[in-house]
Write a protein that binds this DNA or RNA. Structure first.
Length: 385
RNA sequence: GGGUCGAUUGCAGAGCGGUCAAAUGCUCGAGACUGUAAAUCUCGCGGCUUUAUGCCUUCGUAGGUUCGAAUCCUACUCGGCCCA
Protein backbone atom coordinates (compact mmCIF):
# COMPACT_ATOMS: atom_id res chain seq x y z
CA UNK A 1 0.00 0.00 0.00
CA UNK A 2 1.20 3.47 -0.89
CA UNK A 3 0.04 6.66 0.74
CA UNK A 4 1.04 10.20 -0.20
CA UNK A 5 1.40 12.29 2.91
CA UNK A 6 2.02 15.59 1.29
CA UNK A 7 3.24 17.28 -1.85
CA UNK A 8 5.47 20.25 -2.29
CA UNK A 9 3.78 22.91 -4.38
CA UNK A 10 6.79 24.29 -6.18
CA UNK A 11 7.83 20.90 -7.55
CA UNK A 12 6.19 17.54 -8.15
CA UNK A 13 7.99 16.10 -5.15
CA UNK A 14 5.75 13.98 -2.98
CA UNK A 15 6.46 12.66 0.48
CA UNK A 16 4.78 9.41 1.34
CA UNK A 17 5.02 5.96 2.78
CA UNK A 18 4.88 2.43 1.51
CA UNK A 19 3.56 -0.36 3.67
CA UNK A 20 5.07 -3.78 3.18
CA UNK A 21 4.88 -6.88 5.32
CA UNK A 22 8.28 -6.04 6.73
CA UNK A 23 7.53 -2.50 7.68
CA UNK A 24 6.77 0.99 6.51
CA UNK A 25 9.19 2.85 4.25
CA UNK A 26 9.20 6.63 4.00
CA UNK A 27 9.37 7.87 0.40
CA UNK A 28 11.28 8.97 -1.54
CA UNK A 29 13.92 6.45 -0.57
CA UNK A 30 17.02 4.82 -1.96
CA UNK A 31 17.89 1.13 -2.02
CA UNK A 32 21.45 -0.09 -2.52
CA UNK A 33 21.87 -3.07 -4.80
CA UNK A 34 22.52 -6.33 -3.00
CA UNK A 35 22.35 -8.15 -6.31
CA UNK A 36 23.73 -11.42 -5.01
CA UNK A 37 22.15 -11.06 -1.56
CA UNK A 38 24.90 -8.86 -0.23
CA UNK A 39 25.68 -5.19 -0.58
CA UNK A 40 29.28 -5.89 -1.46
CA UNK A 41 31.67 -5.61 1.46
CA UNK A 42 28.99 -4.79 4.04
CA UNK A 43 26.82 -6.51 6.65
CA UNK A 44 23.03 -6.24 6.55
CA UNK A 45 22.91 -5.30 10.21
CA UNK A 46 25.30 -2.38 9.95
CA UNK A 47 23.30 -1.10 6.99
CA UNK A 48 20.19 -1.19 9.14
CA UNK A 49 22.16 0.84 11.66
CA UNK A 50 22.89 3.63 9.22
CA UNK A 51 19.16 3.84 8.55
CA UNK A 52 18.82 1.93 5.36
CA UNK A 53 15.14 1.39 4.43
CA UNK A 54 15.39 -1.46 1.94
CA UNK A 55 17.63 -3.10 -0.61
CA UNK A 56 17.46 -4.83 -3.96
CA UNK A 57 18.35 -8.43 -4.73
CA UNK A 58 18.33 -10.01 -8.16
CA UNK A 59 16.24 -12.94 -9.30
CA UNK A 60 18.62 -13.92 -12.06
CA UNK A 61 21.80 -13.86 -9.98
CA UNK A 62 20.30 -15.69 -7.01
CA UNK A 63 18.77 -18.26 -9.28
CA UNK A 64 22.25 -19.06 -10.63
CA UNK A 65 23.94 -18.91 -7.25
CA UNK A 66 23.24 -20.22 -4.67
CA UNK A 67 20.00 -21.36 -6.31
CA UNK A 68 16.39 -20.88 -5.27
CA UNK A 69 16.12 -24.22 -3.48
CA UNK A 70 18.86 -23.29 -1.10
CA UNK A 71 17.28 -19.94 -0.33
CA UNK A 72 13.95 -21.65 0.31
CA UNK A 73 15.72 -24.00 2.69
CA UNK A 74 17.27 -21.01 4.41
CA UNK A 75 13.78 -19.66 5.04
CA UNK A 76 13.77 -16.96 2.38
CA UNK A 77 16.28 -14.40 1.25
CA UNK A 78 15.63 -12.01 4.16
CA UNK A 79 16.56 -14.68 6.61
CA UNK A 80 19.40 -15.95 4.46
CA UNK A 81 21.07 -12.54 4.35
CA UNK A 82 20.06 -11.57 7.88
CA UNK A 83 18.12 -8.48 6.87
CA UNK A 84 14.77 -7.78 8.51
CA UNK A 85 13.64 -4.84 6.42
CA UNK A 86 11.87 -4.94 3.07
CA UNK A 87 13.63 -6.37 0.03
CA UNK A 88 12.84 -5.78 -3.60
CA UNK A 89 13.73 -8.45 -6.13
CA UNK A 90 14.62 -7.30 -9.58
CA UNK A 91 13.26 -9.59 -12.24
CA UNK A 92 16.34 -10.23 -14.36
CA UNK A 93 15.08 -7.73 -16.94
CA UNK A 94 18.21 -5.67 -16.71
CA UNK A 95 20.23 -8.75 -17.63
CA UNK A 96 18.30 -8.82 -20.90
CA UNK A 97 19.93 -5.49 -21.51
CA UNK A 98 23.40 -6.04 -20.17
CA UNK A 99 23.89 -9.62 -21.33
CA UNK A 100 21.88 -9.87 -24.53
CA UNK A 101 21.38 -6.46 -26.06
CA UNK A 102 24.96 -5.44 -25.39
CA UNK A 103 26.66 -8.79 -25.94
CA UNK A 104 24.71 -10.99 -28.29
CA UNK A 105 26.70 -14.14 -27.58
CA UNK A 106 25.57 -14.04 -23.93
CA UNK A 107 21.97 -14.88 -24.64
CA UNK A 108 18.95 -15.00 -26.91
CA UNK A 109 15.76 -13.08 -26.64
CA UNK A 110 12.47 -14.49 -27.88
CA UNK A 111 9.00 -13.01 -27.79
CA UNK A 112 8.03 -15.62 -25.23
CA UNK A 113 11.11 -15.81 -23.01
CA UNK A 114 14.85 -15.16 -22.74
CA UNK A 115 17.81 -17.49 -22.62
CA UNK A 116 21.00 -16.51 -20.83
CA UNK A 117 24.45 -17.94 -20.77
CA UNK A 118 25.64 -18.03 -17.19
CA UNK A 119 28.79 -15.92 -16.80
CA UNK A 120 29.73 -18.24 -13.95
CA UNK A 121 30.05 -21.52 -15.84
CA UNK A 122 28.76 -20.87 -19.36
CA UNK A 123 25.62 -22.97 -18.90
CA UNK A 124 22.37 -21.86 -20.56
CA UNK A 125 19.33 -20.81 -18.53
CA UNK A 126 15.81 -20.03 -19.61
CA UNK A 127 13.83 -17.29 -17.92
CA UNK A 128 10.14 -16.75 -18.55
CA UNK A 129 7.98 -14.02 -17.01
CA UNK A 130 6.21 -16.72 -14.97
CA UNK A 131 9.45 -18.25 -13.75
CA UNK A 132 10.76 -14.84 -12.70
CA UNK A 133 7.64 -14.23 -10.58
CA UNK A 134 7.73 -17.76 -9.20
CA UNK A 135 11.31 -17.30 -8.08
CA UNK A 136 10.53 -13.94 -6.51
CA UNK A 137 7.80 -15.58 -4.44
CA UNK A 138 10.21 -18.32 -3.48
CA UNK A 139 12.74 -15.72 -2.42
CA UNK A 140 10.04 -14.27 -0.19
CA UNK A 141 10.58 -10.60 -1.01
CA UNK A 142 8.11 -7.83 -0.27
CA UNK A 143 8.48 -6.04 -3.59
CA UNK A 144 8.62 -7.64 -7.02
CA UNK A 145 9.29 -6.49 -10.55
CA UNK A 146 7.87 -7.87 -13.79
CA UNK A 147 10.34 -9.30 -16.27
CA UNK A 148 10.87 -6.67 -18.94
CA UNK A 149 12.83 -6.22 -22.12
CA UNK A 150 15.25 -3.44 -21.40
CA UNK A 151 16.70 -1.99 -24.62
CA UNK A 152 19.61 0.38 -25.15
CA UNK A 153 18.32 3.91 -25.77
CA UNK A 154 20.14 3.98 -29.09
CA UNK A 155 17.93 1.25 -30.52
CA UNK A 156 15.94 2.01 -33.65
CA UNK A 157 12.32 2.93 -33.25
CA UNK A 158 11.29 -0.44 -34.58
CA UNK A 159 13.41 -2.27 -32.03
CA UNK A 160 12.15 -0.05 -29.22
CA UNK A 161 8.60 -0.80 -30.32
CA UNK A 162 9.32 -4.53 -30.20
CA UNK A 163 10.75 -4.22 -26.72
CA UNK A 164 7.69 -2.27 -25.56
CA UNK A 165 5.39 -4.94 -26.98
CA UNK A 166 7.34 -7.72 -25.32
CA UNK A 167 7.44 -5.82 -22.04
CA UNK A 168 3.65 -5.40 -22.10
CA UNK A 169 3.03 -9.04 -23.02
CA UNK A 170 5.40 -10.25 -20.33
CA UNK A 171 3.83 -7.92 -17.76
CA UNK A 172 0.42 -9.46 -18.41
CA UNK A 173 1.86 -12.93 -17.86
CA UNK A 174 3.63 -11.76 -14.71
CA UNK A 175 0.44 -10.32 -13.26
CA UNK A 176 -1.45 -13.49 -14.03
CA UNK A 177 1.21 -15.63 -12.41
CA UNK A 178 1.34 -13.24 -9.46
CA UNK A 179 -2.40 -13.53 -8.80
CA UNK A 180 -2.18 -17.30 -9.06
CA UNK A 181 0.69 -17.44 -6.59
CA UNK A 182 -1.17 -15.21 -4.12
CA UNK A 183 -4.13 -17.53 -4.30
CA UNK A 184 -2.08 -20.72 -4.21
CA UNK A 185 0.01 -19.59 -1.27
CA UNK A 186 -3.04 -18.15 0.51
CA UNK A 187 -1.34 -14.82 1.06
CA UNK A 188 -3.52 -12.25 2.81
CA UNK A 189 -4.13 -8.97 1.02
CA UNK A 190 -2.18 -6.92 3.57
CA UNK A 191 0.79 -9.28 3.30
CA UNK A 192 0.84 -9.48 -0.48
CA UNK A 193 4.08 -8.38 -2.07
CA UNK A 194 3.96 -5.22 -4.15
CA UNK A 195 4.31 -5.80 -7.88
CA UNK A 196 5.86 -3.30 -10.27
CA UNK A 197 5.53 -3.05 -14.03
CA UNK A 198 8.37 -1.44 -15.95
CA UNK A 199 7.77 1.23 -18.54
CA UNK A 200 10.05 1.02 -21.58
CA UNK A 201 10.17 2.99 -24.82
CA UNK A 202 13.62 4.55 -24.85
CA UNK A 203 13.53 8.26 -25.48
CA UNK A 204 10.42 7.99 -27.68
CA UNK A 205 7.71 9.70 -25.69
CA UNK A 206 4.81 8.12 -27.54
CA UNK A 207 6.23 4.65 -26.92
CA UNK A 208 6.65 5.46 -23.24
CA UNK A 209 3.05 6.57 -23.23
CA UNK A 210 1.83 3.44 -24.98
CA UNK A 211 3.77 1.22 -22.61
CA UNK A 212 2.57 3.10 -19.53
CA UNK A 213 -1.09 3.06 -20.55
CA UNK A 214 -1.04 -0.66 -21.32
CA UNK A 215 0.68 -1.47 -18.04
CA UNK A 216 -1.76 0.72 -16.12
CA UNK A 217 -4.61 -1.31 -17.62
CA UNK A 218 -3.05 -4.44 -16.15
CA UNK A 219 -2.90 -2.60 -12.81
CA UNK A 220 0.22 -2.77 -10.71
CA UNK A 221 1.12 -1.41 -7.29
CA UNK A 222 3.78 0.71 -8.90
CA UNK A 223 5.49 1.46 -12.16
CA UNK A 224 9.14 1.62 -12.94
CA UNK A 225 11.19 3.66 -15.34
CA UNK A 226 13.12 1.20 -17.48
CA UNK A 227 16.33 1.51 -19.46
CA UNK A 228 19.27 3.75 -18.79
CA UNK A 229 18.31 7.27 -17.71
CA UNK A 230 21.13 8.79 -19.77
CA UNK A 231 21.78 8.95 -23.49
CA UNK A 232 24.96 7.69 -25.11
CA UNK A 233 26.72 10.96 -24.32
CA UNK A 234 25.81 10.71 -20.66
CA UNK A 235 23.11 13.39 -20.76
CA UNK A 236 20.32 12.79 -18.27
CA UNK A 237 16.98 12.18 -20.00
CA UNK A 238 15.09 14.59 -17.78
CA UNK A 239 12.21 15.20 -20.18
CA UNK A 240 11.58 11.48 -20.60
CA UNK A 241 11.68 11.01 -16.83
CA UNK A 242 9.22 13.86 -16.31
CA UNK A 243 6.91 12.73 -19.09
CA UNK A 244 6.92 9.15 -17.82
CA UNK A 245 6.32 10.13 -14.19
CA UNK A 246 3.31 12.18 -15.27
CA UNK A 247 1.82 9.15 -17.02
CA UNK A 248 1.70 7.16 -13.79
CA UNK A 249 -1.42 7.58 -11.64
CA UNK A 250 -0.74 9.69 -8.57
CA UNK A 251 -1.77 6.98 -6.13
CA UNK A 252 0.78 4.53 -7.55
CA UNK A 253 4.40 4.14 -6.59
CA UNK A 254 6.97 5.44 -9.07
CA UNK A 255 10.19 3.48 -9.13
CA UNK A 256 13.17 4.97 -10.96
CA UNK A 257 15.21 1.85 -11.59
CA UNK A 258 18.95 2.27 -11.64
CA UNK A 259 18.94 5.97 -10.79
CA UNK A 260 21.40 7.30 -10.12
CA UNK A 261 23.82 10.07 -9.36
CA UNK A 262 22.90 12.31 -6.43
CA UNK A 263 21.81 15.10 -8.75
CA UNK A 264 19.75 12.70 -10.89
CA UNK A 265 17.98 11.47 -7.77
CA UNK A 266 17.25 15.01 -6.62
CA UNK A 267 15.89 15.87 -10.05
CA UNK A 268 13.76 12.72 -10.24
CA UNK A 269 12.39 13.13 -6.73
CA UNK A 270 11.43 16.64 -7.79
CA UNK A 271 9.56 15.09 -10.73
CA UNK A 272 7.58 12.78 -8.48
CA UNK A 273 9.62 9.57 -8.44
CA UNK A 274 9.44 7.73 -5.11
CA UNK A 275 11.94 4.88 -5.21
CA UNK A 276 15.51 4.62 -6.38
CA UNK A 277 18.20 2.02 -6.57
CA UNK A 278 21.65 2.21 -8.05
CA UNK A 279 25.08 0.64 -7.95
CA UNK A 280 26.81 4.00 -7.91
CA UNK A 281 27.43 4.43 -4.17
CA UNK A 282 28.88 0.96 -3.78
CA UNK A 283 30.63 0.49 -7.11
CA UNK A 284 32.18 3.92 -7.15
CA UNK A 285 33.04 3.51 -3.49
CA UNK A 286 34.90 0.31 -4.29
CA UNK A 287 36.72 2.20 -7.00
CA UNK A 288 37.79 4.91 -4.60
CA UNK A 289 35.27 7.71 -5.05
CA UNK A 290 33.79 9.08 -1.85
CA UNK A 291 30.72 11.28 -1.76
CA UNK A 292 30.74 14.13 0.72
CA UNK A 293 28.03 16.61 1.62
CA UNK A 294 29.12 20.19 1.16
CA UNK A 295 28.36 23.05 3.53
CA UNK A 296 26.64 25.01 0.81
CA UNK A 297 23.59 22.88 0.16
CA UNK A 298 20.71 23.42 -2.20
CA UNK A 299 16.94 23.29 -2.25
CA UNK A 300 14.90 20.85 -4.29
CA UNK A 301 12.71 23.64 -5.57
CA UNK A 302 15.57 25.51 -7.17
CA UNK A 303 17.91 22.64 -7.86
CA UNK A 304 19.89 22.74 -11.04
CA UNK A 305 23.10 21.32 -12.38
CA UNK A 306 25.22 24.09 -10.99
CA UNK A 307 24.19 23.53 -7.42
CA UNK A 308 26.96 21.75 -5.66
CA UNK A 309 25.39 20.29 -2.58
CA UNK A 310 28.05 17.63 -2.54
CA UNK A 311 31.52 16.91 -3.78
CA UNK A 312 33.50 13.81 -4.45
CA UNK A 313 37.07 12.82 -3.80
CA UNK A 314 39.16 10.01 -5.24
CA UNK A 315 40.81 8.47 -2.22
CA UNK A 316 43.43 6.90 -4.51
CA UNK A 317 44.86 10.32 -5.29
CA UNK A 318 48.37 10.91 -4.00
CA UNK A 319 47.25 14.02 -2.11
CA UNK A 320 45.44 11.88 0.47
CA UNK A 321 48.53 9.91 1.48
CA UNK A 322 49.20 12.39 4.29
CA UNK A 323 45.68 13.62 4.95
CA UNK A 324 44.99 12.63 8.55
CA UNK A 325 41.53 14.16 8.77
CA UNK A 326 38.66 11.78 9.51
CA UNK A 327 36.91 10.04 6.62
CA UNK A 328 33.72 11.74 7.79
CA UNK A 329 33.77 13.58 11.14
CA UNK A 330 29.95 13.81 11.09
CA UNK A 331 29.29 10.13 10.44
CA UNK A 332 27.00 8.00 12.59
CA UNK A 333 29.56 5.23 12.24
CA UNK A 334 32.52 5.28 14.61
CA UNK A 335 34.85 3.77 11.99
CA UNK A 336 34.18 6.60 9.57
CA UNK A 337 34.78 9.19 12.30
CA UNK A 338 37.90 7.52 13.61
CA UNK A 339 39.81 6.22 10.59
CA UNK A 340 41.67 8.86 8.61
CA UNK A 341 41.64 9.58 4.90
CA UNK A 342 45.35 8.75 4.86
CA UNK A 343 44.61 5.32 6.30
CA UNK A 344 41.81 4.75 3.79
CA UNK A 345 44.20 5.80 1.02
CA UNK A 346 46.65 3.23 2.30
CA UNK A 347 43.96 0.52 2.40
CA UNK A 348 43.16 1.24 -1.25
CA UNK A 349 46.82 1.18 -2.22
CA UNK A 350 47.32 -2.23 -0.68
CA UNK A 351 43.89 -3.32 -1.98
CA UNK A 352 42.64 -4.40 1.41
CA UNK A 353 38.87 -5.10 1.36
CA UNK A 354 38.45 -2.92 4.44
CA UNK A 355 38.99 0.05 2.13
CA UNK A 356 36.08 -0.98 -0.10
CA UNK A 357 33.97 -1.54 2.99
CA UNK A 358 34.62 1.85 4.53
CA UNK A 359 34.13 3.63 1.22
CA UNK A 360 30.85 1.77 0.58
CA UNK A 361 29.56 2.63 4.04
CA UNK A 362 30.56 6.25 3.60
CA UNK A 363 28.68 6.48 0.31
CA UNK A 364 25.59 4.64 1.52
CA UNK A 365 25.39 6.93 4.51
CA UNK A 366 25.72 9.86 2.13
CA UNK A 367 22.86 8.55 -0.04
CA UNK A 368 20.71 8.01 3.05
CA UNK A 369 21.40 11.51 4.20
CA UNK A 370 20.54 12.78 0.73
CA UNK A 371 17.17 11.00 0.82
CA UNK A 372 16.47 12.33 4.31
CA UNK A 373 17.16 15.80 2.99
CA UNK A 374 14.79 15.29 0.09
CA UNK A 375 12.07 14.01 2.43
CA UNK A 376 12.47 17.15 4.48
CA UNK A 377 11.33 18.87 1.33
CA UNK A 378 11.97 22.58 1.44
CA UNK A 379 14.94 22.32 3.75
CA UNK A 380 18.40 22.45 2.38
CA UNK A 381 20.26 19.32 1.41
CA UNK A 382 23.60 19.62 3.11
CA UNK A 383 25.73 18.16 5.84
CA UNK A 384 23.92 19.99 8.62
CA UNK A 385 20.76 17.92 8.30
C1' G B 1 95.22 -12.78 -8.70
C1' G B 2 93.06 -15.64 -13.24
C1' G B 3 88.70 -16.72 -16.03
C1' U B 4 83.83 -15.76 -17.29
C1' C B 5 79.08 -13.48 -17.67
C1' G B 6 76.59 -9.09 -17.05
C1' A B 7 75.38 -3.52 -16.47
C1' U B 8 68.66 -0.94 -20.52
C1' U B 9 64.07 4.66 -18.97
C1' G B 10 61.01 3.85 -10.60
C1' C B 11 61.43 -1.94 -10.29
C1' A B 12 61.65 -6.61 -12.98
C1' G B 13 62.86 -7.59 -17.85
C1' A B 14 62.75 -7.68 -23.69
C1' G B 15 65.69 -5.67 -27.46
C1' C B 16 71.47 -7.67 -30.14
C1' G B 17 73.21 -2.35 -36.63
C1' G B 18 68.45 1.38 -39.07
C1' U B 19 61.18 0.76 -38.59
C1' C B 20 63.98 2.39 -30.62
C1' A B 21 62.35 7.30 -26.40
C1' A B 22 63.16 1.59 -26.54
C1' A B 23 58.24 -4.71 -25.96
C1' U B 24 55.76 -6.70 -21.67
C1' G B 25 54.43 -6.90 -16.48
C1' C B 26 54.47 -4.26 -11.97
C1' U B 27 54.79 0.33 -9.46
C1' C B 28 53.41 5.27 -10.03
C1' G B 29 49.91 9.44 -11.92
C1' A B 30 44.94 10.65 -13.53
C1' G B 31 40.08 9.46 -15.27
C1' A B 32 35.47 6.65 -16.07
C1' C B 33 31.54 4.05 -13.64
C1' U B 34 23.50 5.19 -13.34
C1' G B 35 17.60 -1.92 -12.26
C1' U B 36 26.40 -4.91 -10.75
C1' A B 37 29.66 -10.61 -16.19
C1' A B 38 32.57 -4.37 -12.71
C1' A B 39 38.01 -5.41 -5.98
C1' U B 40 36.53 -3.56 -13.30
C1' C B 41 37.87 -0.60 -17.46
C1' U B 42 40.49 3.60 -19.97
C1' C B 43 44.45 6.92 -20.54
C1' G B 44 49.39 8.69 -19.16
C1' C B 45 54.24 7.38 -17.43
C1' G B 46 62.65 10.96 -20.28
C1' G B 47 62.31 16.42 -21.52
C1' C B 48 60.53 20.42 -24.70
C1' U B 49 57.48 22.80 -27.94
C1' U B 50 54.44 25.27 -33.11
C1' U B 51 51.47 18.27 -30.00
C1' A B 52 54.35 16.47 -35.04
C1' U B 53 55.90 10.27 -39.93
C1' G B 54 58.81 17.47 -34.65
C1' C B 55 63.26 18.68 -31.76
C1' C B 56 66.58 17.42 -27.69
C1' U B 57 68.78 14.09 -23.99
C1' U B 58 68.97 8.85 -22.64
C1' C B 59 70.30 1.90 -22.65
C1' G B 60 77.29 1.82 -16.59
C1' U B 61 81.73 5.60 -18.19
C1' A B 62 85.10 7.28 -22.07
C1' G B 63 86.64 6.65 -26.83
C1' G B 64 86.23 4.19 -31.72
C1' U B 65 84.03 1.60 -36.33
C1' U B 66 79.76 2.91 -39.51
C1' C B 67 75.83 6.98 -43.76
C1' G B 68 73.58 5.17 -39.04
C1' A B 69 75.07 2.15 -32.43
C1' A B 70 71.13 0.25 -26.65
C1' U B 71 72.93 -3.26 -30.33
C1' C B 72 79.88 -4.06 -33.17
C1' C B 73 85.23 -2.88 -31.23
C1' U B 74 88.75 -0.98 -27.24
C1' A B 75 89.77 0.67 -22.40
C1' C B 76 87.91 1.70 -17.76
C1' U B 77 84.26 1.34 -13.48
C1' C B 78 80.99 -1.62 -10.86
C1' G B 79 78.44 -6.43 -9.92
C1' G B 80 77.44 -11.99 -10.24
C1' C B 81 79.56 -16.76 -10.75
C1' C B 82 83.85 -20.19 -11.24
C1' C B 83 89.13 -21.34 -10.34
C1' A B 84 93.35 -20.16 -7.19
Amino acid sequence: MFKIIHKLDKTKLRIGEIKTKRGVIQTPFFMPDATRAVVKNTCSKELEKIGLEAMVVNTYHLCLQPGVDLIKKAGGVNKFMNFDKPLLADSGGFQVFSLIHRLKEMGKIYDTHVEFKSPIDGSWHKLTPEKSIQIQFDLGVGMMVCLDDCPPNEFSREDLENSVNRTIAWAKRCKKKYLRQIKKRKIKAEEAPLLFGVIQGGAELDLRKKCALELIKIDFDGYGFGARPVDKDGNFLEKVLEFTADLIPKNKIRFALGIGTPEDIVKCAGLGWDMFDCVIPTREGRHGRLFQMSDVGCQISDFNNNDKFYNTININNAKFACDFRAINPDSELAELREYSLAYLHHLFKIKDPLGARLASLNNLEFYNQLMRGIRLGGKKINKKL
